[in-house]
């Protein structure tokens, strides 16, 4: 039995110390998942907190036969997609509009430290802007695969889709991302 499963089972019996260990172990991964899927540090913080609160309250339903990571990212994925549906994008301007107007894409708010962002290339910024424009479930699938390193089978379980649907989403997302990056290549 993995450490995560053991901690989760203890948490399901009301062991808050065990649950705190789980939060400490996974908060960085979860926070970055939400940061990439929402693009906003404040939203990522709120959703990370909400995820762990939901996780604690649903601990009684957790079965040790299921992977803890899959269980946790299933809740995270639902939160990310619901969040995207319930809120209009606040940046307002699309990447295409910016290019049409001859403007550079905005520095994506993925880091609180502006100095770190300053080192990013124009291509990276364009990639983040293009990622933010993908449909919420495509963005989630890309982040689960490339950022969180989940397998297609795990992503299918997390998102409640078939493996072939996940393959299709990732393929279409990459086509769209590559197309958006084309004007930024030398």
């Amino acid at each position: 039995m993995s450490d995560d499963v053991s901690l989760m089972l203890r948490a399901s019996r009301g062991d808050r110390k065990a649950f705190r260990s789980l939060v400490e172990r996974h908060q960085q991964s979860v926070y970055n998942f939400f940061l990439r899927t929402t693009g906003h540090p404040e939203d990522a913080e709120d959703l990370t907190q909400q995820l762990f609160i939901n996780l604690y309250r649903s601990a009684g339903r957790y079965k040790p036969t299921a992977s803890f990571r899959t269980f946790m990212y299933r809740i995270a994925s639902n939160l990310a997609v619901s969040f995207a549906r319930s809120r209009h994008r606040r940046d307002g301007v699309s990447l295409d509009q910016m290019l049409d107007e001859g403007r550079e894409p905005p520095r994506h708010r993925l880091h609180d430290d502006p100095a770190a962002g300053a080192e990013w290339s124009e291509l990276e910024e364009a990639y983040l802007a293009a990622l933010a424009e993908l449909p919420a479930d495509w963005r989630t699938a890309v982040e689960l695969r490339v950022g969180r390193q989940l397998s297609y089978k795990e992503i299918a379980q997390v998102m409640g889709k078939s493996v072939s649907a996940v393959e299709s989403i990732l393929f279409r997302a990459r086509e769209r991302l590559a197309e958006k990056l084309e004007p930024f290549k030398e």
Binding site: V23, Q27, Y31, P41, E45, T48, H111, E124, V146, G147
Partner: peptide, 14 residues
């Protein structure tokens, strides 16, 4: 995507 920075979460989360 792989080169994106893994940001430290705010200390207020826990």
């Amino acid at each position: 995507h792989k080169s994106l920075i893994e940001v430290s979460p705010p200390p207020s989360i826990v």
